[in-house]
Design a protein around this nucleic acid. Sequence first.
DNA 1: ACCTGAACACCGTTCAAGT
DNA 2: ACCTGAACACCGTTCAAGT
Lengths: 239, 239
Amino acid sequence: MARPKKVRHGDAVLTHEHIVATALRLADADGIRQLSMRRLATELDCGVMSLYHYVVDKEALIEALVDQVAREVVPPPKGVAWREAVRHIAEATLAAQLRHPWAIPVWSTSWPGPYRFALVEQLLDTLAHAGLPPDVADLGFHALTNHVQGFAQQRISFGQLESRAEVTRDRLEAMIAQGKFPRVAEHVEFHRSERSAQDEFGFTLDLILDGLEKFADGEKRPSVLRAGREDGDSRDSNA
Amino acid sequence: MARPKKVRHGDAVLTHEHIVATALRLADADGIRQLSMRRLATELDCGVMSLYHYVVDKEALIEALVDQVAREVVPPPKGVAWREAVRHIAEATLAAQLRHPWAIPVWSTSWPGPYRFALVEQLLDTLAHAGLPPDVADLGFHALTNHVQGFAQQRISFGQLESRAEVTRDRLEAMIAQGKFPRVAEHVEFHRSERSAQDEFGFTLDLILDGLEKFADGEKRPSVLRAGREDGDSRDSNA
DNA sequence: ACCTGAACACCGTTCAAGT
DNA sequence: ACCTGAACACCGTTCAAGT
């Protein structure tokens, strides 16, 4: 209660690390929409403007926050087959995102920090060792990340549909009750059934991986794409 | 300048339609972040609170806005093969989204309006006529929409990377210059090359469609999924 | 170097009141 | 029914000033 004059913060000194950790805690607790610079400052027991000595922007803060989530993704064990490595990365990324649902909508919107860069590098490198034509690897990368991202988004959308948001749930019921959207009604039913508790994520993942594997080691030529890179190792200066 | 006492608005009477149309124009011009109830009211030459007689929320306004984008997606011609129909829907949705880039991040976040419901219904119905096991159709639906959504997102991300945002561009250059992410550097190079101007979108679309087609008419059984619905037409009451 | 309060230029929305 | 200004409870950030 009676605290020394010079020390402004309750327990810890103000650092970038401490700020980000606290912001992460707030985001996990109340979602990212409730996270304001002012609320964060109050939580840290400091003035709002003190934060701007460690963080250039609110946007930069959120970047750092998302990067913390990317940091949680543990790399696959060394030496596993490429399909297993890809599956590991995909599942670990999904799990990390679902642990921090607020991060899902901002994941692709915010600028990637070092940990997300490393994650991207890892997936690209895994695909580069799969014997795929380089262009197929580049396109496969997006197919895979889009699946992870889309699946996570869908999970939280349907999640908040089914849980607390009773109003939203009623709105869906009303839409369906019109009878104009029978296929949508069936689809919602599918998501509510135990059938969808099966490995939905893995199904589409395998579909993509199967599709990509066909191009491995010249088994199949990419039809719509021009010939891949001729030069095997041209990663020089101007990238 | 001297306008009649009773008429508050410059040119048109205040209606839901007119409000949404004006908001759409503002969003197209300056992006959705610049769109505020106050700015919209100024543009419509009315008091801010007048808007709340036609729109319950800002959220509801944005829902209506996104639904206008969904409305622009023209259905495929009747009678075409299912793959062509899916391709048409996917391409038309992507085109509409790219015409209104502000809609892309909010597309999956905001509640779907009637036009987006109709669009979903259309795609589900197309897949239902493809001879796929129902569960495969339901999962394929997400695979396809995730591809469209992810591709659109990727386009605007890379777009704003390459264009006006010089700061962001420099940040990417700096990240790459570290030399720690050679695969990312190659990947960025791929996106900048004419190679990626090929039909990237269609490649992954075909990959998904090929994968799904294998399950058509019992050619292949879904391995990770339980047997599909037994009852052919059970779309009754409790959806 | 690190921290800060006051002030600026905004937000969305509630409320009570007008016609 | 339709419209509204004032007020409330917030925002992120600039600036000038403190230690």
